[in-house]
């Protein structure tokens, strides 16, 4: 049976998080170019359940709509006042207002713990910022595996799970369904479907690896 190394997988996951983060920033020509190149660079993704959604996105990136058209769609879906699918997590909270402040403070604290800070003008709860944070955590995990530091790798995996669950999984699928309802099979509908499939897969992966890690801690031969 084929296998892969955990470090390689962490690098792949890091790259995918960065791709989705890029796709959810305002579409300028160089970002689209980078996305197009990235979509062709990934091989071997067919072994993952999210491949179908990824493949639809990648095929859409072969000949993406002009940046101006995408910019208009981006504005209408995500950015304009009253847009149906804002990219900020706080828009999906059951109780906005007070809870928004708490969420932003929590996120900023988390980022600060990691030595990160959102770039000026970026909201801490923006999908792209959260995806970048996950990419950063995956990078740390990959580095730990490469340095053969099991404890640090485990710690990174735990941090990934602790970030993904409450801060991305809690709202991104809801956002994705709204986008797909509004944008259908258009470019952003495909981005949303692929991001949803990837993030849900990440939740399953991290839960499983964590659980196996716990078994290992109790004397099993597995991680």
């Amino acid at each position: 049976m084929a296998t892969c190394e955990a470090g390689e997988l962490a690098r792949l996951r890091q790259a995918l998080y960065r791709v989705f983060a890029t796709a959810l920033l305002p579409p300028v020509a160089e970002r689209l170019q980078a996305l197009q190149e990235a979509s062709q660079a990934f091989g071997g993704l067919a072994c993952f359940a999210f491949y179908g959604a990824w493949q639809r996105l990648a095929s859409g990136l072969q000949a993406p709509p002009p940046a101006a058209v995408l910019a208009e769609a981006y504005e209408g879906l995500f950015a304009a006042s009253g847009a149906p699918c804002p990219l900020q997590a706080s828009a999906y909270l059951a109780v906005p207002g007070e809870a928004t402040g708490r969420l932003l403070a929590e996120l900023l604290h988390r980022y600060a713990q990691l030595g990160l800070a959102p770039t000026a003008g970026s909201s801490a709860d923006h999908a792209a910022v959260q995806l970048e944070a996950m990419a950063f955590l995956c990078q740390r995990e990959a580095q730990a595996w490469e340095e053969r530091d099991v404890a640090a790798a485990r710690q990174a995996l735990a941090e990934e799970a602790a970030f993904l669950g409450p801060y991305l999984l809690s709202w991104l699928p809801l956002w994705a369904r709204r986008v797909q309802a509004a944008a259908g099979e258009g470019f952003y509908g495909r981005v949303a479907a692929a991001a949803e499939a990837f993030v849900i897969h990440e939740g399953d992966y991290l839960q499983l690896v964590q659980r196996q890690g716990a078994q290992h801690a109790h004397g099993s031969a597995r991680l």
Partner: peptide
């Protein structure tokens, strides 16, 4: 390799 993962099955 420290940690090897089987390819995923769903």
């Amino acid at each position: 390799s420290l940690l090897r993962l089987s390819l995923p099955v769903y």
